[in-house]
Design a binder for these strands. Sequence first.
DNA 1: GATGAATGAGTCTTCATTCAT
DNA 2: AATGAATGAAGACTCATTCAT
Lengths: 190, 190, 190, 190
Amino acid sequence: MQGNSKKDRILRATLKLITENGFHATPVSMIAQEAGVGAGTIYRYFKSKESIINELYDIIMKELHEATMANIPPDISVRDEFYTKWKNILNFFITREYEGRFISQYMTSPYIERTVIEETKRRNIHLKLLIERGISQGEIRRVDYNTIAVYMWGTIKQLHYLYVNNAINLTEELIDDIYSVFWEGIRIHK
Amino acid sequence: MQGNSKKDRILRATLKLITENGFHATPVSMIAQEAGVGAGTIYRYFKSKESIINELYDIIMKELHEATMANIPPDISVRDEFYTKWKNILNFFITREYEGRFISQYMTSPYIERTVIEETKRRNIHLKLLIERGISQGEIRRVDYNTIAVYMWGTIKQLHYLYVNNAINLTEELIDDIYSVFWEGIRIHK
Amino acid sequence: MQGNSKKDRILRATLKLITENGFHATPVSMIAQEAGVGAGTIYRYFKSKESIINELYDIIMKELHEATMANIPPDISVRDEFYTKWKNILNFFITREYEGRFISQYMTSPYIERTVIEETKRRNIHLKLLIERGISQGEIRRVDYNTIAVYMWGTIKQLHYLYVNNAINLTEELIDDIYSVFWEGIRIHK
Amino acid sequence: MQGNSKKDRILRATLKLITENGFHATPVSMIAQEAGVGAGTIYRYFKSKESIINELYDIIMKELHEATMANIPPDISVRDEFYTKWKNILNFFITREYEGRFISQYMTSPYIERTVIEETKRRNIHLKLLIERGISQGEIRRVDYNTIAVYMWGTIKQLHYLYVNNAINLTEELIDDIYSVFWEGIRIHK
DNA sequence: GATGAATGAGTCTTCATTCAT
DNA sequence: AATGAATGAAGACTCATTCAT
């Protein structure tokens, strides 16, 4: 999606316009114009307007996954791995403006095919492993995988929601304050 | 909205259909049919299709607020007040199927007038007071209000998201497990 | 139409609103409100919205006719009768703002039943008699009745058109200048 | 507007239907059908239904102006220039059935943008020059420009009105009779 | 008689998608 | 492969008219 192929330009145009205006306020003709292609051309690369969204969602979720896994050396501690991954995801949402808002908007939308739920689960396996490692190493309490997932994603999505609606000032202090509750909540207090 | 007036029937029909199909996949004519009124009748009670949503959102947020404040005796402990309110909100999301999904979908939508953000802030004042009480009574750590807000809402919204997408089995154990992380994360470990 | 009966109030409201806004920009409900009656009440007095127009047209044309015949003593000269009647009509158009504009707007409209053409002809008989008298008395040239009619009405309607569109400044000089062309054009130059 | 382009066909269809039925009794779908195009196609060429009218009015007024100026050799006499132009305009109204009725109907309508009034004034400059020439050459009396304008247009519009309503039989005799009153009224009787 | 809430047919307009070039 | 003109189905909304009260 970083390239300059027609398909990439269509995807980027869709991401930008749909994030800014919403799905129904973005006609295909507008996407075509922003992408610098003919309206008909879009239908060479995508079956329908909806399918652009689905492909976009898939790409962005892959990118999010990659970003999540960055800076995790093989010998990283449980504590650091949790922190690094949480921060990786948060950074993705905050720094990649369009992508972050796009995920928020379309995660709950009826346009996204329901297969992505499965896909997401599959991509979260690394988290399951991390939890198991944390428990077996006596670093964290014996909490459910879903519990961790709820906290990892729930905090980030809510933070992001407040951020894009200008309801909060996103300082390092606040971010660390928020993370600390999560970590204090799951770690074993020795 | 529980009544049988035409207006109530329109609101209920809109809530159901829009939650199930989305705003743009729900023609006004369909709302009229579900409500058992003529299409034109809708415009006696609402300025536009969009304004139905806005009124609906307002009503539901009021109901959510009321539900949040239930079962809070004056002499309740900080610990119990946190738990009760969190459970109240979660219960509202889980048991009021349409209302919960509606809030999730439209919280981020462009249809909702931006004044509701302020309204929401205003309604959350009780949470601010609770936090202050918890801190002054030495029950919880000195955490930011926004941190608490992120956890209260973030966990519930994510739980709800997984629930309506059938990604989790919502047992009492899981719910308590999830809540415990929050509470362990903010309470002072004596 | 000067009275205070419901019917009169409906007619007056229609005249005002329709002249200012046009037929299609004036809903029946607006007429009802202006008249201070219920919308349904209008249908006790008129078969349809269109029929209000037709009745209105009929009333106004009668009033115009009466105004036309004012100040004509039995022994008036041909010259004075022409002048007085022309001025009478012009005055009606200019001083009765709504009525004048109403006639202009609806004379050519498809809402007016075509029977009024006959009615108008019938009402113009006095003009035919005047012409005949003028010719037999050697005051005016032997011109066709239709010619006179074209001038009487054409000049007034065009003057009125320019007047309501603020295209001219309607001074006594201009009015007399205009009339003089007509009179000089038909009188016998002795 | 004589061509066979889609735009021309839309303009011609609108002229015909709107003249026969009136603006509000002519749905866009009907125009599309008469023009042999899809309803949506109309909006490629015109911003709105109203804008078709405005463009139409502009085109027709240009054509009327051209027709008015026909057959006027540079050395034409004042008398002949008056007559030729008057006849040119009358012929346009009579022979171009739709155009004539369209002008009559929409000259006073609220759909026509008010800028056209100015445009019309501008186009009538040639008449001003003719009057000045007539006065300086001692051919016509010192009458106001507006007086002449009232007669030129007033007579034609009234004649046309009676003609399209079948109230008169438009013979050459009548036409000349009518014109003679105007000319006798303004010329200097030597 | 009077009302005005209710209706639903009818209108303009948008826009995803097609297809001739 | 690429285009963009053309389409027409579909949608929000208005309003003349009806009818139960």
